[in-house]
Amino acid sequence: MSEKKVDPKIAARRLLVRGGLVVAYVFLVGLFFVTGKGHTVLVDNKDAADGSAVGINGALVSIDGREALEQYPGDRDIVLLKGQRHRVRIQLPSGEPPIEMSLALPLNTDMLLLSIPKLVAKQAGYLEEFVQRDQPRPADEKVGDNNAFTSPDAPVTTPAP
């Protein structure tokens, strides 16, 4: 049962290949995380809290060339985005040339609030993290009590209380 002696050159090459594989694995995980990371952006057309910017009547907001959202003062729309770099285009009702700019979303933030009035007024803080305060919790669920042999297509049934 003696261990076979491996040529040091082969052992070194093996180590190199294995190390390379680990590096490639970590790189790919990172790459897919960054490129696939989703963000929920709330496109907001409410007045700024300090009154420095007011909601725009009939602004058309389009992100990444998607269908434009027609916004009126007090409106808030939800947009799901993937990745960090995006392009926003705002068409004002006054007929001025559209405002176009790129958005860089922070990787670590899931939900952001994009204030259209602040962006149009070129104020800082037009993009900020949005934290839901009183987040509704889902109702309690019983788990592990559905042990039936059903087809994968069968709907998941919750037992009667």
Partner: peptide, 15 residues
């Protein structure tokens, strides 16, 4: 981690 699309599938497969 809110990773979606085909990238999300590849991410899940890699993990």
């Amino acid at each position: 981690f809110n990773v979606g699309g085909v990238e999300g599938l590849a991410f899940a497969a890699l993990l």
